[in-house]
Design a protein around this nucleic acid. Structure first.
Lengths: 205, 205
DNA sequence: GAACATTTTGACCAATCGGTCAAAGCGAGG
DNA sequence: CCTCGCTTTGACCGATTGGTCAAAATGTTC
């Protein structure tokens, strides 16, 4: 029963991971207020008091999820390399973000729920953490445009449009599938084709 | 105290409109399960039993809102004119949708909340009502592309991208403002510039 | 197997939820 | 004035909510 550097036993880490995963299921589907501790406990196959032995409150679980998410979520943007080929860097960013919508739709919806309802839990992070990163990368893109490596357009709205378009396929999955109909089994390949074309025409000199 | 054709007195219509507006405030901010009847009643300056005198239940208010919304929401798409100038028709559609995000952000968020959480209340409408309309308009756009009036790209994903990009400025308003910072008072003019450029480059032959 | 810390649980609590109901308030017509 | 139908309300209900607690179960260590 040794403590590791983080002060958690193996069992604790495993249970916390299980709870975190179950909570992601529930919160992303019903939003914070729409989710109940009982739902999460059931999804994690734990009793409610047992769950609250590992997390002090429902809000603590939610905060824990969001805190860990923000880093992962902006990672593709952080990887945008000022030294790389401008167009290829941005198209790679688009591909990475779309892959995240495909592979992490729950995280996308959790984030969407939070921002949609006013970002009350992560509002400060948006200003203190996300804004500086966007400013930095927008400056890089602006430089590329000034150098004539990309067609000019507002770099910050370019980033917004990448977020919006890629996350749409996770957050509005139900609508996308309803409109495309059952004959389209997987919308993501055609979505990638469309988005790569769109941003190529928008940026390629 | 005469009944009008809809079976409502003037007073009833006025109260129902007040409740509807208050409910739109509350539901769009907190989602369905996150909203309480007391909140809506307070926002409408009514007692809870009084509110439930006009609507039989919380769900009835929500359904009433969504039913009336869907028609309004897809109206700009319905106005897309097969006889008009292809590029100008689509750019007009973009402008109309963006104006709706600016002027009806609550409606946009109500819709986003609903779809994000699985579209349980309007799922059928998406398949039976929205899909046929998109199919019809996508065929028009496809024809334009086949005639060489627009650059080719998937028409249905083109429509998705218009929805996604325009609604982003309503649904993720908090994030947009946090990233742009307080020096940008109104993001919509620069958003319109960006989107018109984007879709022009995407479609203009 | 005794002693100890950790984990799990059933029972319970106060607060809040959506919704009901009988009674009171109210304006218009006679 | 009285009556009649529409509107409004305080009090209340059972169900569900997030969270507590003492006790039991389950390791772990010697």
């Amino acid at each position: 029963m040794k403590d590791n550097p983080a002060g958690q036993t193996r069992i604790q880490r495993h249970k916390i991971a299980t709870i975190t995963d179950a909570a992601l299921d529930v919160f992303s589907t019903h939003g914070f207020r729409g989710s109940t501790v009982d739902q999460i406990a059931k999804a994690a196959e734990l009793s409610k008091p047992n769950l609250l032995y590992y997390f002090p409150s429902k809000e603590a679980i939610h905060t824990h999820l969001l805190d860990n998410l923000l880093d992962i979520w902006v990672d593709p943007l952080r990887q945008l390399d000022p030294e790389g080929d401008p167009l290829e860097e941005i198209l790679t960013y688009v591909r990475r973000k779309l892959a995240m919508s495909r592979d992490m739709p729950r995280e996308s919806r959790l984030f969407a729920n939070e921002v949609l309802q006013g970002a009350q839990h992560i509002g400060d992070s948006l200003s203190n953490f996300l804004k500086p990163l966007v400013d930095e990368k927008a400056a890089v893109i602006q430089l590329w445009m000034d150098q004539g490596a990309l067609k000019p357009s507002d770099p910050r709205h370019l980033i917004f449009s990448i977020w919006s378009l890629t996350q749409h396929y996770a957050d509005f999955d139900v609508q996308v599938r309803a409109v495309l109909g059952p004959e389209v089994e997987d919308p993501f390949p055609e979505a990638e084709d469309y988005l790569i074309t769109l941003f190529s025409r928008q940026l390629k000199v």
